[in-house]
């Protein structure tokens, strides 16, 4: 059973469209597997939408610079809007509903279904070190790196902490660390106060988002710091 969920604040920013694509996709992937969060998201979306299109609510947004924008440009605006309506309705085009297609990705001869939130994202080539394989999700978000990380049975990630945050959404399989066992669908958000050493006995596939290279804390692994850059 899924035990780890995104915080309410995170869901709220997700609904508002304020999160980067990497984290938005992480929440969407989790919600696809988690009816509970799915429900929170749809209720919140309904509320936010209702509020957004309610006159009295919008009035609160009107601060001084906005009223200027309203008064002086109103007639101008009306004209622009009439043009826009004509322009839009002159198009005969109808958007066709996307039919659900399935996309898959292979790691070590195993085929996994790609979450639909990632369907339009570009994936880099798969690289491997030992029991770890990864494919970068090319989102171009500066410091934030997004990765599909595959751990073969018996593999693990050396003990590390994070300078920033590290999000792991478990797409398939399971792993455990000092805090416990994680299963498919779990949404695990860690920050710099967490130190962990995940091991996967059966193997797993994760969607990870981290905003800084990992910091390895365990003996000889300090020497292997490049592995941090490899994974995240």
């Amino acid at each position: 059973m899924i035990k780890h969920h995104p915080s309410f604040e995170l869901i709220q920013s997700f609904v508002n469209g304020d999160l980067p694509a990497s984290l938005s996709a992480g929440i969407a992937i989790h919600a696809d597997m988690c009816p509970k969060c799915q429900q929170i998201i749809s209720q919140l979306t309904e509320q936010v939408a209702e509020n957004s299109f309610e006159e009295t609510f919008l009035d609160r947004f009107i601060v001084d610079d906005m009223s200027d924008f309203d008064d002086n440009n109103m007639s101008n605006n009306d004209l622009k809007f009439t043009d826009m309506i004509d322009n839009i309705t002159s198009s005969e085009e109808i958007a066709v509903a996307k039919t659900k297609v399935e996309k898959t990705i292979n790691f070590r001869e195993k085929t996994y279904q790609l979450p639909s939130a990632l369907h339009s994202m570009k994936l880099g080539k798969t690289a491997q070190i030992g029991k770890l394989s990864r494919a970068r999700v090319q989102l171009d978000e500066g410091e934030i790196h997004t990765t599909l990380l595959h751990i073969s049975p018996g593999g693990g990630v050396p003990e590390h902490t994070h300078k920033g945050f590290e999000l792991t959404v478990l797409l398939d399989g399971s792993f455990h660390d000092e805090q416990g066992e994680y299963v498919k669908g779990d949404f695990i958000m860690l920050d710099s106060s967490h130190q962990h050493h995940p091991i996967s006995i059966q193997g797993c596939l994760c969607y990870t988002v981290a905003n800084d290279a990992l910091h390895f804390t365990q003996g000889i692994n300090k020497l292997l710091n490049p592995i941090g850059a490899f994974i995240y």
């Binding site: 469209g17 694509a21 938005s24 996709a25 969407a28 509903a97 996307k98 039919t99 659900k100 639909s116 939130a117 990632l118 369907h119 339009s120 994202m121 570009k122 989102l139 171009d140």
Partner: peptide
């Protein structure tokens, strides 16, 4: 300058 239009995959408007 990224024109990848990811939103409809993240927040699907209507699937069949």
């Amino acid at each position: 300058n990224r024109e990848d239009n990811l939103s409809d995959d993240i927040w699907p408007l209507a699937e069949q």
